[in-house]
Design a protein around this nucleic acid. Structure first.
Length: 422
RNA sequence: GUGAUCGUAGCUCAGUUGGUUAGAGCGCCUGACUGUGACUCAGGAGGUCGCCGGUUCGACCCCGGUCGGUCACCCCA
């Protein structure tokens, strides 16, 4: 019966069997991250609001209108984390982790954003992400992109693709900004309201506009590539060279600029058509200025965040989950006496032999108990009824082969059961 | 935040120009099968028709509000 309460808008319960897919993905992610030398970091779910205002950028949509912010009982301004990068950097600085040299960290957990929910977009979402600190060279860019791509490939997702761009650095981006302003300003009045607003605050974002009124002007805007400084151009070329070398496919999209203020140089996304309008499953890039802007030593860094819900959506669309292999035992007792005889055997199968073992404690008929065995995914059934009790035997049935054998109900029964597996 | 659309059993969905006991398939439970699971047949349980209010003699159906889902915009994971 439905209760009077429902999960808050934009949140969802992760119930079985979906929860099993989640933990399988999480296990795979952990193994992959460790393979690349990344160690896990866990940070608080809430932080002081100022951290995000400074770290993510005052003018971003996230900070302007999407944060879960409140004042706690001590009068502190608190925000549920809308992303991980700023908290990770804060923790890295607080723990002085950079003192030991370059640092590779990954994280996995929920984020919170107050948005209108739709497909692939939730108010509580989960992200896996990676941050690589201390390398300014293109190898680090390649490494994080390759890591994300490995996960996509591991799940055989075929319609995903990497979109790549360079948005310049602190030296050359101002030049591009100026060029854009020069291009758009004379025609500002013809732009959409949204683009007019963006023009003054962050002209790069005008390029993102999908408004038809802006299309012509956006198309004729100067290409960012033309104003990249030599350093940025060399860096971008080197990243592309590495991707080509490793055979990682990508497309360059000069209009992709990303909405977080801290990115410079390399930005990338992994997108998929099956996600609908929320086409991006993974987004990241280089943020060489962020550590210093949060009070740390100048430290180059690259990273990405990947949406678990969206990733699972892609997995579901590409490859229906294979039914798990059957394993373990279903103990089927007929009657109270058989039940009490079976309980210690089941316990021993679990404790001494590490086997999965299930048992129904109701007075159900054999047939019903077999159905339960199927539902539990058990490989074997152990049947004990009055006949067996009289003969001092236990029936062990292989539910896949449909073969049976009788084992003596004496001595270490669990040992005999396990022995019979071979 | 804007717009559109939807909300009936655990799941997928019928339903009525407003009329009294709300249906199907799947699933679940029980039985036909003397104690053996994915087949067959029969029976059964399970619904405040999202919630609140209004109109009406009468509302699952009409109207308003609200909550939630979905899709697009916006934004992003």
């Amino acid at each position: 019966m439905a209760s009077n309460f429902a999960a808050p808008r934009g949140t969802q319960d992760i119930l079985p069997p979906a929860s099993a897919q989640w933990s399988a993905l999480e296990a795979r992610i952990r193994a992959l991250a460790e393979q690349f030398g990344y160690a896990e970091i866990r940070t608080p779910i809430f932080e002081s609001t100022a951290l995000f205002a400074r770290g993510v950028g005052e003018a971003t949509d996230i900070v302007e209108k999407e944060m879960y912010t409140f004042v706690d009982r001590g009068g502190r301004e608190i925000t549920l984390r809308p992303e991980f990068t700023a908290p990770v950097v804060r923790a890295v600085l607080e723990g002085n982790l950079l003192a030991a040299g370059p640092l590779r960290l990954f994280y996995l957990g929920p984020i919170f954003r107050y948005e209108r929910p739709q497909k692939g977009r939730y108010r509580q979402a989960h992200q896996f992400g990676v941050e690589c600190f201390g390398f300014e060279g293109p190898e680090a860019d390649l490494e994080v992109i390759a890591l994300a791509w490995s996960l996509v490939r591991a799940y055989g997702i075929d319609d995903a693709r990497i979109v790549l761009n360079s948005i310049g650095d602190a030296a050359c981006r101002p030049r591009y900004r100026a060029a854009l302003l020069e291009h758009f300003r004379p025609h500002a009045a013809t732009l959409s309201e949204e683009s007019q607003r963006r023009l003054e605050r962050n002209p790069l974002r005008v390029l993102d506009s999908k408004d038809p009124r802006d299309a012509a002007l956006v198309a004729s805007a100067p290409a960012l590539e033309s104003t990249l400084c030599d350093g940025c151009r060399a860096h971008f070329d080197a990243v592309r060279g590495y991707l080509d070398l490793l055979g990682i496919p990508y497309v360059v999209d000069p209009s992709m600029v990303r909405g977080l203020d801290y990115y410079e140089r390399t930005v990338f996304e992994i997108t998929s058509g099956i996600l609908g309008a929320q086409s991006s499953v993974c987004g990241g890039g280089r943020y060489d200025g962020l550590v210093a802007s949060l009070g740390g030593p100048p430290t180059p860094a690259v990273g990405f965040a990947l949406g678990i819900e969206r990733f699972l959506l892609m997995v579901a669309a590409c490859a229906p989950p294979a039914p798990p292999a059957r394993s373990g035992y279903q103990a089927i007792a007929l009657g109270a006496q058989a039940r009490s005889r079976l309980v210690p055997i089941v316990a021993r199968l679990r404790d001494a032999y590490g086997r999965a073992a299930f048992m129904d404690y109701g007075d159900r008929r054999v047939k019903a108990q077999f159905k339960i065995a199927d539902r539990n995914g058990a490989r074997y059934a152990l049947i004990l009824g009055t006949d067996e009790l009289e003969r001092g035997e236990l029936v062990r049935r292989d539910l896949v082969d449909r073969t049976e054998q009788r084992l003596p109900l004496a001595g270490d029964v669990a040992a005999a059961i396990v022995e019979a597996e071979r």
